[in-house]
Design a protein around this nucleic acid. Structure first.
Lengths: 249, 249
DNA sequence: CATTTTTCAATCAAAATCAATCAAAAACAA
DNA sequence: TTGTTTTTGATTGATTTTGATTGAAAAATG
């Protein structure tokens, strides 16, 4: 029996019941205890299951997607606070661009009561946006597998069909001189385009993003409002250049 | 046996089961172990399979995520058969358009071993396409909540960035005079655009779709090949107009 | 709480599988 | 044909996987 087969068998057994004992796995797979142990370690590493004394158990609450509520509570409080403030800026009837990323994702439930039109390049956002019955448009283009974002030349073209009252961007680095940065140049150009099509731009950046420079420049600082939970002593040089809104969780 | 033949045989064996052992491959192909090893290395390079110690396995997703398949419990054998034939038409290196819908969805696992570029307007397809590591582009535009398809004027514009070797469309009605029809005019125009941008067009229509006229016309019959499980007595009038491929489940 | 039992992680040697190499066979070109 | 290139299969030493063993750690028991 090949290794992936065995892994599959283990996961299958876990689907039926919610736990399996080592003894059962050894019996089912005809492999030795040592091998099963190695498999379990690997599968736990892959977050496919949870090891427990004597065997394995399915990962947390069922193998299903965590519900929206669950997902929200798992998220860091800082992202929540940033998202909450950002969402409070959105007014009824606004057209907004919502960048891909976990912080902008947190804004979605807070937008549900408002009468907004949302354009996004984040595939992960789509399910949630439509489930809240928000009028949603998706940007066309190539899908970047890792971040599940739409990027590339077509995405830029596609974006230009729209105009935004406000756009909310996540970024990977903020630096007084280098401006807003992100590692992927193709993502950078999409963000930059959204920014140019938008009346106001808001950058959602938790404290860890400051000082960091990650290759491709998105825009200069003075083009946007920064929303962050960064401590005050980090900010003087940024405040000289643009508006910075500090939120606390 | 010629090399491409052997490669095909290996891939075929992988389609049926999800893993194959080296020993099985040697036996099936009558080639030496060294040759099989070289084949596997090549096919892995081409991203058509995944090598594992002791043999090969199909690429990631399929075996590891039964949750996706479980979601689609209502997959009739007919849809499977239609999808299987449709997928067999796709050649290495093709650029194809995959329409939103459950039948085209069934094609995805069968495309994993081919080097294809897929453009789709079906949001439900995206997750699965990327999980199979297929190069995926999404059409931009408004999201129709009910069908999770991208539609509207922007979708049409967005589509025009591409050209397809083949396009695979789902349809709600087929009628000798009225042609291919679908209830939503905005969907109809997207399908029609895809068709016009494509070298060949294939219509995936199970038997229930024949005779039905559902409002908005997509195209005339003669523009496409119909792939269906419809009984022969239903087809004479269609066969006069275009090619009809009948599959059985 | 001490003892017994079970399960665990680490280690190691055997077995299986692999990559690299090379010469023979086959396909190809002149 | 002859010489060249490509493909193939056998061999070899290296690598990976495996199962047994051991003492440590964790649960169960009295």
């Amino acid at each position: 029996m090949l290794t992936p087969e065995r892994h599959q068998m283990i996961l299958k057994l876990l689907q039926d019941r919610k736990t399996v004992k080592m003894k059962e796995l050894v019996e089912a797979t005809k492999a030795s205890e040592s091998t099963i142990r190695r498999d379990l370690s690997y599968l736990e590493e892959q977050k496919k299951l949870r090891r427990v004394h004597g065997g394995a158990s399915i990962k947390s609450a069922a193998s299903e997607e965590p519900s929206l509520q669950e997902k929200r509570t798992v998220q860091l409080a800082e992202k929540q606070a940033i998202a909450e403030y950002a969402a409070s800026l959105v007014r009824d009837g606004d057209s907004i661009f919502l960048d891909a990323g976990s912080t902008t994702y947190e804004m979605i439930p807070l937008l549900a009561q408002k009468n907004v039109l949302v354009v996004t390049n984040g595939l992960s956002h789509l399910e949630t946006l439509t489930s809240y019955d928000i009028e949603t448009y998706v940007v066309g283009g190539r899908i970047k597998r890792k971040t599940r974002a739409v990027i590339g030349a077509h995405a830029v073209e596609s974006l230009k069909h729209y105009r935004f009252d406000k756009c909310f961007l996540g970024i990977n680095g903020v630096h007084p001189k280098e401006g807003f940065t992100t590692p992927d140049p193709e993502e950078a150009v999409v963000k930059n385009t959204a920014l140019q099509l938008s009346g106001e731009t808001f950058i959602l950046a938790d404290a860890s993003k400051f000082h960091e420079i990650t290759f491709a420049k998105v825009a200069d600082i003075q083009d946007a409002v920064i929303i962050s939970d960064a401590p005050e002593d980090l900010l003087p040089s940024f405040k000289e250049l643009t508006e910075v809104k500090v939120v606390t969780s």
